[in-house]
């Protein structure tokens, strides 16, 4: 899997690459507009992370270029602006997702996972992990070929974990994922715990191995080799 990180802030680009490394993603970097343009026209990537404010030009132009060349690369905009117009314009120009800075790396990883899944046409709609089978189109979960009924939030959490295999996810990141902007306005993250407890219970009761581990004091981890 090849990922292009178009981001002029080296520290952030480094962090992203470091986090994605363990998932067998191969990350390349582009710091300036012209560099980015050259790379997207020359090579193909499974996913492009695009910062809109680049030295030398507007990131939107890269989207336009991709569209003009009919490229199939998945694109996630990562922007500090968080402007609704940018989001609408970006999605309209063919971007798959929009993530406002600052974001959790786990959130980014989950979205990259989802974008890549959507862009792959063969067997892309079904995630198979041992006894666990997730149908992305039908949004159903099967364990040992038997359906397990999950709430929307539990299903969301499950996909989030699958997209962040073997990595520790902070409660904070999960709370933000579940309640968006409100997360930090809530006094505690107990509701996260409640959802996870339910998810865990449903999965194990259906005969699924306990992949979801609690990491003391910090968060959770989906362990699977």
């Amino acid at each position: 899997m090849k990922i292009l990180i178009i981001e002029d802030e080296p520290e952030l680009a480094q962090s992203i690459a470091e986090y994605l490394k363990s998932e067998n993603y191969l990350c390349e970097f582009a710091v300036t507009f012209s560099e980015a343009l050259e790379k997207v026209t020359t090579y193909e990537y499974n996913c492009i992370l695009l910062d809109l404010m680049l030295p030398g030009g507007d990131g939107m132009k890269i989207l336009e270029e991709l569209k003009k060349q009919d490229k199939q690369d998945g694109v996630i905009i990562i922007s500090a602006k968080n402007a609704l117009e940018d989001k609408i314009k970006g999605l309209h120009l063919g971007a798959d997702d929009y993530l406002a800075k600052p974001f959790h790396l786990s959130e980014l990883a989950a979205r990259i996972y989802s974008v890549i899944r959507r862009r792959q046409f063969t067997n892309a709609n079904v995630i198979q992990q041992n006894e666990l089978q997730i149908d992305l189109l039908a949004k159903t979960v099967l364990i040992h070929d038997k359906p397990v009924i999950l709430t929307k939030k539990e299903y969301d959490l499950l996909l989030y974990f699958i997209g962040n295999k073997n990595r520790v996810i902070s409660k904070n990141a999960l709370a933000e994922h579940l309640s968006g902007d409100f997360a930090d306005m809530l006094d505690n993250y107990d509701f996260v715990y409640a959802h996870i407890k339910n998810l865990k219970k449903k999965l194990t009761e259906a005969g699924c191995d306990n992949y979801l581990k609690t990491v003391y004091g910090t968060g959770y981890k989906w362990e699977n080799d």
Binding site: E9, Y19, N82, S106, Y216, G217
Partner: peptide, 27 residues
């Protein structure tokens, strides 16, 4: 401020992946 905040957040997320964290450090 968004960019430095994003960097801090990403560094914290990375730090969390360290295998050798004590529970105190995690807290």
């Amino acid at each position: 401020l968004q960019t430095p905040l994003a960097i801090i957040q990403s560094k914290l997320d990375l730090l969390l992946q360290s295998e050798y964290l004590t529970s105190q450090e995690s807290e």
